[in-house]
Design a protein around this nucleic acid. Structure first.
Lengths: 138, 138
DNA sequence: ATGACCGATGATATAACATAACATCAGTAT
DNA sequence: ATACTGATGTTATGTTATATCATCGGTCAT
């Protein structure tokens, strides 16, 4: 059910693969410099290399940037061409990617005033996950 | 019509006033350092002073941060306790603040997965304003 | 009044995030 | 072989943000 996700893996460069793996393995959002630390052993050693790969991966829809965190996450859907929201636990940084239904996308785009024709929507929801919820603490 | 906007001006410190005026006069989003440049003449000369005032003003709902720009804008409503979206022209940086209807707020909060209880929603819509639209250019 | 305390502001220093600009290299078309 | 092109490596620097400690002004118990 749900076609559209059979990663044809749009052939990545070595750097892009390294960095995507890094993000996937981490399972949580990482800053560009956190990524850099983790891929040094693979021979990547300068910030621009990381940012270039991240930008390429974002163009391919395989990585998203969490604006409110200056951090990056691998797309949970392998790749998606774009309309999604994120929920982020402010305590533990857990991230849930929310694929937006067509009607939700439409509503969001509809929020734009006449004056500005919308191209891209960023939605980030901050809150507390169940594990971090106060009522759950000892 | 529409109560709730008769600014009782929740007494601001000198720094907060300076920085809020600066943002209001600018009419466009400014980075913290752009603000700093403009308030040096008023005796504010260090980044932490600016960030402190901005954080205080944000707590009061009188300033918002545009996450996708690392920039700050004065609240167009004087102050609001929080649910709004922004539309931003990617070419000229014009910003339109969109006060969200209750149903839109509800919808956005409803996007959050069970796993994360939402507290705050960031919505930023990037696009092109009429003035910057290609079809309008010579 | 004095001085102990406390919150706000000032100042220094540095951390964290991001990119401009140029060098080098691999592939390929001539 | 040479010249072009696009990707990657490298240096340097620009931009955004905060930790930390110092200082100042008010309040309050004595």
């Amino acid at each position: 059910m749900n076609a559209a996700h059979h990663h044809d893996a749009p052939k990545l460069s070595r750097n892009q693969s390294e960095i995507l793996s890094c993000l996937r393995n981490s399972g949580e959002p990482l800053s560009a410099y956190a990524i850099l630390d983790r891929v040094r052993k693979s021979g990547i050693s300068h910030p621009p290399t990381v940012y270039r790969a991240l930008n390429d991966l974002m163009k391919k829809g395989m990585v998203h940037r969490l604006e409110s965190r200056s951090a990056f996450v691998a797309c949970g859907h392998g790749a998606c061409d774009g309309k999604f929201a994120f929920a982020i636990c402010r305590a533990c940084d857990k991230v849930v990617e929310i694929l937006l239904a067509d009607k939700d996308q439409a509503l969001l785009l509809g929020l734009a005033p006449d004056e500005i024709s919308p191209e891209q929507v960023t939605v980030e929801i901050a809150g507390l996950c169940n594990d971090c919820h106060p009522s759950r603490l000892a």
